[in-house]
């Protein structure tokens, strides 16, 4: 007899709101039902259900050939995922905290990302896991890793900000024939404000397409992940207190970058602020600024500015981490400076 679908994975089917974490679980579960070649590997994802319980009850439902608890060796099991992908499987690898992806950097950048180009065929695999600060996780449980991989052609990088996008983007990532690094902000996982009722059909959100979160005419904020929500807060304050209209572009996919969406918005508002939780030097703001310089220099009525974390390891103590991370007030001050420019 087939095991029954765990109750907690049927919320969308029942029309109930889900958190971003539940949306991710549903995406994984539904993709594993839809396609037998999809399987999971990672540390503590089976018996324990994952450090954040994303794969709770998956092992009993799918069995240990499709939900594989691995040795603590991110390089080893990510490499094994690549081998399995060559043989027609579609692995989804969980990195328990994305800070620990570094041992897999070699196989991701030298092997996986180059595979299709080298003629070894596509690498349909997803490497997903929690990122981001604000949870007092300290230097090794808080990092954003996108820019360690942004410079590697052949990879796609996805970073959702809502439950709806997380589910649709993860499904699209699993179905994509290219390797995808999928970042899940742990501060958004169970955020009550992000709970929403999702469509109960099999929707996907295409990779490579930004989303206009909020239309505006005076300033563009390009952002992603947790900073989408802080930017929206700042924009609402600007609207009511300053009468300034802020457009917010949520990148959703960082690589490939939706340059058209950015340029189009800048041509409308003529001012650009980039906001990211990742650290400053070598952050994505630099790449966005040069693209806008190339494509829309004549449209700019002010300097391109950025609000980011400071260039430091992620500190542990609350007072330090709050100072380290970009806050709504930082976004507000930068946007006001730009509006007045």
């Amino acid at each position: 007899m087939d095991p029954e679908t765990p109750e907690h994975l049927l919320k969308t089917k029942r029309g109930e709101p889900v958190t971003m974490l539940e949306a991710i679980s549903e995406a994984l579960f539904e993709e594993m039902i839809r396609d037998e070649s999809v399987f999971l590997m990672g540390e503590d994802i089976g018996v324990y259900g994952g450090a954040f319980k994303v794969t709770r009850d998956f092992l009993s439902f799918f069995g240990e050939n499709r939900v594989i608890d691995t040795p603590i060796a991110e390089g080893g099991f990510t490499g094994a995922a690549a081998g399995a992908a060559h043989m027609g499987l579609r692995p989804v690898v969980e990195i328990q905290f994305m800070d620990f992806i570094s041992p897999a950097y070699d196989v991701i950048t030298n092997y996986i990302a180059t595979s299709n180009y080298r003629g070894a065929g596509p690498q349909p695999l997803v490497i997903r896991g929690p990122v981001g600060g604000g949870n007092r996780g300290g230097p090794f449980h808080s990092q954003n890793v996108e820019m360690a991989f942004f410079h590697t052609p052949g990879l796609k990088i996805v970073y959702p900000s809502t439950a709806r996008d997380a589910k649709g983007l993860l499904k699209a990532s699993i179905r994509d024939d290219n390797p995808v690094i999928f970042e899940e902000h742990k501060g958004l996982y169970r955020a009550p404000s992000l709970r929403e009722v999702l469509p109960d059909d099999d929707y996907v959100v295409p990779l490579g397409e930004a989303r206009i979160v909020r239309e505006g005419t005076d300033i563009t904020i390009v952002t992603y992940g947790s900073m989408v929500h802080k930017s929206v807060e700042a924009a609402e304050t600007m609207e009511t207190e300053d009468g300034v209209s802020v457009e917010i572009v949520d990148l959703r996919t960082l690589l490939p970058l939706d340059e058209d969406a950015i340029v189009e918005s800048v041509k409308k508002t003529n001012k650009l602020l980039v906001v990211h939780e990742d650290t400053r030097t070598g952050g994505i703001a630099g790449e966005i600024a040069i693209r806008v310089s190339e494509k829309a220099f004549e449209w700019l009525d002010g300097p391109i500015l950025r609000v980011t974390a400071i260039d430091a390891p992620v500190p542990y103590s609350g007072s330090l981490e709050d100072y380290f991370l970009p806050q709504t007030d930082d976004v507000l001050k930068a946007a006001r400076y730009l509006a007045a420019y």
């Binding site: 094994a80 060559h86 196989v107 092997y111």
Partner: peptide
């Protein structure tokens, strides 16, 4: 790296 790759191939 190829030990990892072959581990995954033979896992399949």
């Amino acid at each position: 790296t190829m030990i990892e790759i072959m581990a995954g191939m033979t896992l399949s």
